[in-house]
Amino acid sequence: MIKHRLFWPTASLLALLLGNFIANPGFFAIELRDGHLYGSLIDILRNGAPLILIALGMTLVIATGGIDLSVGSVAAISAAIACLQISKLGDQNSISGMLGAMGIALALSLVLGAWNGLLVAVFGIQPIVATLILMVSGRGLAQLITEGQIITINSDPYKAIGAGFVVALPLAILIALTVFVLISLVVRKSALGLLLESVGGNPEASRLAGVQSRRLIWLTYLLCGLFAGLAGLMLSSNVSSADGNALGLWMELDAILAVVIGGTMLTGGRFSFGGTLIGALLIQTLTTTVYRLGIPPETTLLFKAVVVMAVCLAQSPAFRRKVLGRRKPKPPAQASQTQTKVEIPA
């Protein structure tokens, strides 16, 4: 059980939840008010939904041996476009107008994801460089759309995406779980998952086997951009505003950490959507813990870094061997061949 890739992320998440319970016995309390569920656990799920979406897209990209540093900027652009379009509506509560604004924002997110995929898959630019370009320029584009201001809207249908409830549960987590189930079924119940792992694990062998690696890589960046755009809509709807400078800032780092904690290697190859989900919830629980314990803002990032490093070290078999004093088992020695002497009578 300890050797399973999901053991240490799950154990770390449970330990973090237990620590919160010890510090605050009411941490696990959930109450029903006006037909909606409220509590710390519900807040973790609702606030963690955007990170889950971005981390799922990041998992696909990392599985092919790539990386996407622009997801935070794409989320900011998507939020800026949607809020700008809604602010121009005569009736901001118009559902058709809201859906139109969301459609434009998600379409632009697809275009940005396709652009990243084009640079990486077609032009052969290193993923960290290709996506760093959009990470920097995209943040400027988001501020250009908002004209350096915070766009505030008053749209109840749009606010429901990030702060609404359906059947007593937050709509945001229902959307994130729906995407999780759909992408898991599509990837794992078809040959797509195997092809992604082959491209990330051994690109040359997959090319010789006839795998269309360029199309697959382009598709992963496309989906990553779409998920980042949807996360941007959630983040902006939760506060009914879009800030091109702050929305989604450094979220790409949390997404990468969630993927790595979930057991997916940055070198590509085997990946786990379930591990990514646990990793995203761990990061969000850690953020909630920081706020609840009243840790000073200047030490928040350091505290998160220490916890994440501890989790990664616990996952490392080499580190556990050195700490516990265990040595790598030696391969069994090959049996020596016995020579049979044949006596020839004189």
Rank of each mutant, 00 (worst) to 15 (best):
V290Y: 03
I22V: 15
T288Y: 13
A280T: 09
R46T: 10
L53W: 10
L108Q: 07
Q85V: 00
S40V: 00
Q92I: 03
A105L: 03
V311E: 03
P25T: 13
V323M: 13
L60A: 10
L230M: 14
S73H: 06
L177K: 02
S73P: 15
A242E: 09
D68H: 12
I81P: 00
F123E: 07
L6C: 07
L108M: 14
Y158L: 00
I256Q: 03
S94H: 04
G269V: 11
D156A: 07
A172E: 03
K189D: 09
N238F: 12
R5K: 15
K159S: 09
F21E: 10
A23H: 08
L266W: 05
P170Y: 02
G113Q: 02
V311H: 02
L286Q: 00
G200D: 02
A49P: 03
M58Q: 14
E298I: 15
A105Q: 02
G269R: 08
R321A: 13
L253M: 14
L16V: 00
A335P: 14
H4N: 14
L18R: 04
V61W: 13
I104L: 12
V342Y: 03
S70M: 04
I295D: 05
I22W: 10
R214A: 12
T338M: 07
F273P: 01
I128F: 15
A11H: 07
P296M: 06
T152Q: 13
M102H: 05
R292H: 00
A310D: 06
R188N: 12
G113V: 02
L208C: 05
S272P: 01
E147M: 09
I145N: 02
I175P: 05
T288F: 11
I44L: 02
K88N: 12
V199D: 03
P25Q: 07
I175A: 05
G200T: 02
A63M: 09
R207S: 15
L282H: 02
A82R: 00
N47T: 15
L247C: 09
W218C: 08
I153G: 07
S87R: 14
K328Q: 12
N24H: 12
Q334A: 11
G325Q: 10
L208F: 15
N20S: 12
G162Y: 01
A168L: 09
G113P: 00
L247H: 04
S316L: 11
E343A: 14
Q339D: 12
R320D: 02
L106H: 06
L233N: 10
I344L: 06
E197M: 10
V61I: 11
R33F: 13
T289K: 09
G148M: 10
E31M: 04
M234W: 15
F180Q: 06
C224T: 08
G275R: 08
V239Q: 15
L112K: 04
A55D: 08
L13N: 09
L257V: 10
G263F: 13
L194S: 11
S316G: 07
Y291L: 14
I81D: 01
S241E: 05
Q337L: 13
I145T: 01
L277F: 15
L277V: 05
S198I: 04
L106I: 14
T276P: 01
